[in-house]
Simulated assay, not measured.
Amino acid sequence: MASFVTGAISLLVFFLIGTSSAQLCSDFYSRTCPQVFPVVRSAVYSAILNETRMGASLLRLFFHDCFVNGCDGSLLLDDTPLFTGEKRAAPNFNSARGFEVIDEIKSTIEMLCPGVVSCADILAIVARDSVAILGGPNWNVKLGRRDARTASQLAANNSIPPPTSNLDFLVSNFNSLGLSIKDLVALSGAHTIGQARCTNFRDRIYTETNNLDSIFAQLRASNCPGNTGSGDNNLAPLDLQSPTTFDNNYFNNLVNRRGLLHSDQQLYNGGPTDSIVRTYYDNPSSFASDFVEAMIKMGDIRPLTGYSGEIRRNCRRIN
């Protein structure tokens, strides 16, 4: 009888540990690595000071990681003989950047708190700090994710919505991840910072006639030749008005038919998202609070916790 009780207690303890470990929380590293926050903040601040565009690039890494099999740091893995990673997927190849900033942060953290902080959590903190440093809202980041031991180029190609997406596809894509229409619009507001390559907006400025300001199209065409292959990597700001400040001007652009990407302007094109765009256009604080809520919600997409995955020592490869 005693052995049965002992076994039952052990099973209950194991269950409770497994259950609690599956919950992300903002104080996850409060005792094991409290240095993580100042280290990340300092590195992100230096990276943005060196190149303002880097803030948007770092934020984008978190999006592109979470949208592929959850927020598990898989985007950061280099190719191996066993798999082709997500870095070479169409949405990321010659586009995703900032990996060296993550490497620097991870290296510093490993010296201070070896084997404690996951690469997936570093991405989440980096995304928050990038927004806050560029003038956007701040929030408590939920932590406790672990790192994937594999990556999938195919999943990245299929999961990250391309800039040619229409509204129905965007809504369906976000819904499949548990994100609402409001989350879609709020998270798209991240395009208030950063730049896009000519190859991603060429079709919009040369072939779309509806819902496109002609003067804006001419401005963008001046740095994006109409011939495919010519100037493909030339850059243009996603937000015409304040491309290096995290604010609500992205929605001003949409209302005035100046969304750079086809997928941007789809949010204000006579559909169900028009009213949300208008709300964020009129009320910056509403956008800020909804963006924070959506970022936290996105960070909850299928994290690895407990005994799943690992804590990578190097974000580019498994242990």
Results as ranks from 00 to 15, higher is better:
268 Y>G: 02
137 P>T: 03
80 T>I: 09
275 S>P: 09
32 T>L: 07
60 R>H: 11
128 R>D: 04
156 A>Q: 06
196 A>D: 15
85 G>V: 00
224 C>W: 02
138 N>V: 00
74 S>V: 08
32 T>A: 10
198 C>G: 03
136 G>A: 12
217 A>G: 03
217 A>W: 02
103 D>F: 06
46 S>D: 08
67 F>P: 01
86 E>C: 14
208 E>L: 07
171 V>P: 03
50 N>M: 01
69 N>L: 12
225 P>C: 05
308 S>G: 12
92 N>P: 10
43 A>E: 07
72 D>N: 15
7 G>P: 12
184 L>G: 03
316 R>M: 07
179 L>H: 07
310 E>Y: 05
254 L>Y: 02
47 A>D: 07
287 F>E: 04
5 V>H: 12
169 F>A: 03
45 Y>H: 05
305 T>A: 09
90 A>L: 14
80 T>A: 11
283 N>K: 08
312 R>F: 06
133 I>M: 08
66 C>M: 00
197 R>A: 06
28 F>D: 06
28 F>T: 13
98 G>T: 02
225 P>A: 06
80 T>S: 15
308 S>Y: 00
120 A>Q: 03
108 T>Q: 13
155 A>Y: 13
241 Q>I: 06
250 Y>K: 05
178 G>I: 14
316 R>T: 10
175 N>K: 13
247 D>N: 15
189 G>C: 08
41 R>T: 07
88 R>M: 10
178 G>H: 07
34 P>T: 10
199 T>L: 09
234 N>T: 12
192 T>Q: 08
76 L>M: 11
242 S>M: 13
285 S>N: 13
225 P>H: 07
298 M>R: 00
195 Q>E: 11
301 I>P: 04
304 L>T: 02
7 G>A: 05
84 T>S: 10
6 T>W: 12
62 F>G: 11
19 T>Q: 02
295 M>S: 14
8 A>F: 15
68 V>S: 04
165 S>D: 09
260 L>Q: 08
89 A>Y: 06
138 N>C: 00
264 D>N: 13
